[in-house]
Write a protein that binds this DNA or RNA. Structure first.
Lengths: 113, 113
DNA sequence: CCGAGTGTTCGACCAGAATCATACACTCAA
DNA sequence: TTGAGTGTATGATTCTGGTCGAACACTCGG
């Protein structure tokens, strides 16, 4: 009857509405996180697990980056078994910071990477 | 006849078009620089000298912040006697990063400062 | 009840950025 | 030519943030 009880602590999210501008800018001003956001943008919601991203850092750092993205209101996470699925908060984040996400996702002419 | 020769090295600028996205975001993701940009926005071009800004840092740090802003294509400087006048590169920067400057200048509901 | 897979937490380390105090360079006016 | 005003450069210090390795927690399938 009841939904499956969560034995694992749910990740703490911050809604974009409550995110300071400096936090949002800092979150995006990192090459690894920018790459995560961009890669996430190419996929459907709840499609990607944390470990499925092609970034040159270890598990620990990756986990930390996702925590930063959650705190900045950029990413939402949901537990699915042992994995954790991700979703880019496009609409909410864009409502709080109009145009910023578009800017981050647009290919950068000055960044050949 | 000739224009007054520059005895002082002219500050090195970077046009917004040549600024990587990460550089622009990092430049704005700092409380002091954000304040400089905002304060500069309230004034006419070439109106403010470097020392005329109300920020809680010493001269050296302030000079460094202006160098960062120049490198990010956000600010242009011109020598005027012993002083150095500043101008916010609104149009050029907005053309390169549409909406970003507006976002930085908009009052932040989550930042009571 | 294990064991593999996934992600987090902890501690430490390191690189880069921000800051300061000091010294320096330049410009203008007296 | 001197002095006040303005900004930069240098070196040292401090602090923040990104990173890793290892240990831990949780889930699911055998």
């Amino acid at each position: 009857m009841t939904a499956p009880r969560a034995h694992r602590a749910a990740p703490d999210h911050t809604h974009p509405d409550h995110v300071p501008l400096l936090t949002a800018l800092s979150a995006l001003a990192d090459p690894v996180r920018l790459r995560l956001v961009r890669e996430l943008d190419g996929c459907a919601d709840w499609e990607r697990t944390c470990g499925s991203f092609d970034v040159p850092v270890g598990k620990a750092a990756l986990s930390h980056h996702f925590a930063t993205l959650r705190a900045a209101g950029l990413v939402e996470q949901r537990d699915a078994g042992p994995k954790r699925l991700n979703r880019l908060r496009r609409a909410e984040f864009d409502a709080r910071f109009p145009g910023l996400l578009d800017l981050a996702l647009r290919p950068d002419p000055q960044q050949p990477a």
